[in-house]
Design a protein around this nucleic acid. Structure first.
Lengths: 212, 212
DNA sequence: GGTGCGATGTATCGGTCCGATACATCGCGG
DNA sequence: CCGCGATGTATCGGACCGATACATCGCACC
């Protein structure tokens, strides 16, 4: 997952580690807290070894200017290679069970603007399927096994169920939009394009975890 | 996290691995997919080494009955020890940053019926704080840095923001309930006398089950 | 009467990712 | 002049996952 995200970001511009982490956090802020350096740097090393990216110490301009008495500290800038772009295209197009999990889906979705429509639809539908199954599991739990669970656990399930229902609705909308040709939901500019009660209850924290 | 969950479940009844996983999945189904055996068994080993639980091969009844020509296969039943119960109480009471993350909060919440009210409130408020911060981050993103992000990423943020707002409202409700004395729906006083099948619903005769 | 198949059951291995930690530089306000 | 928060690179131990292997049981299907 991290590999995909890094490759995707470096495709927009070369960056050094710290910057990469910030951009990563910005782009994926909705689905996961913050990428740890403990995963970022080893992954960068791995990508470089595989030839998907190259790393280069930042050059201190022309060396003429500011002769670097304060020897410029080692900032390492990472750049994606042609093979890396290929790799990204391959990763973004291939879907599997992990694509539909909370984290996997979030990362794929964040790069939908670099994904072709057919793949987008495949992912959205797979995700919907996954959430529908989770929803059915929770429904069963709340129906059949309810008396075996305490009130708090029940409340947690109820909350989770609601989140599932809400996400399915969201996905349905996105799927309809994809089919009808437009990009994601048209940003509601207040009035015109409107859905009526749009800013009522959304799904609670369900599309992340994961950190589960 | 797994340690806490296992200790909590074994407090209700001794179980073997497979059963434990099923119960775990049932109790935490709303917040995480399913616990992997790759984490379950090593953790059980660890807990046993620490003395929090004991493991025992299931006895084939009285050995008199059914002389086990089909030698009963090795089912291992895990039982919590007195030290384990102490450990659980300690883990459930101590709160830290990881208590407010998605997974950590979910696990703690699932055992709220074994948590005292003060701790419950501390956790709910800490969680609210955490989500509020995430929400503010997303709001800023959607406000200031919106033009830097593509439509899909924006939509993801919007969805995440809605989720945060909704969860804050949910937490607020729970906090209000805690303060007013009631549990989520049914009062439940989780005192120290660890017994399985905690008291069935006292007065409020409305064990409603909703089928949407 | 066999045969396959899904549920039950225990267990390991490689790999991803996180949290804590360490260390160094820079600009800024007190 | 000193601390302090932001920038910046990097490692280490540990938690957890996904794939895999293997064995038993009951049951439906032919």
């Amino acid at each position: 997952m991290l590999e995909l995200a890094i490759l995707g970001l470096l495709q927009e511009a070369p960056m050094h580690g710290y910057e990469l982490r910030k951009e990563l956090t910005a782009k994926l802020g909705a689905i996961r807290a913050a990428i740890s350096y403990g995963s970022l740097y080893p992954t960068l090393r791995r990508l470089q070894a595989a030839g998907w990216i190259t790393e280069a110490a930042e050059t201190p301009a022309t060396a003429e200017e500011v002769p670097a008495l304060t020897s410029r500290r080692g900032r390492v800038v990472y750049t994606i290679t042609a093979e890396g772009k290929e790799r990204f295209a391959q990763l973004i197009a291939q879907t599997g069970p992990e694509t539909y999990g909370d984290t996997g889906f979030g990362v794929h979705f964040a790069f939908f603007s670099r994904t072709d429509r057919a793949t987008r639809l495949r992912i959205l539908e797979g995700r919907r399927r996954t959430i529908e199954e989770r929803r059915e599991g929770l429904r069963d739990m709340l129906g059949r096994a309810a008396e075996r669970l305490d009130a708090y656990t029940l409340e947690l399930q109820r909350h989770g169920l609601e989140a599932c229902e809400r996400e399915v609705r969201w996905l349905e909308e996105l799927i309809a939009n994809e089919r009808s040709g437009r990009a994601p939901t048209v940003p509601n500019d207040g009035t015109a394009g409107g859905r009526r009660e749009d800013n009522s209850p959304p799904p609670p924290g369900e599309s992340r975890k994961e950190r589960p």
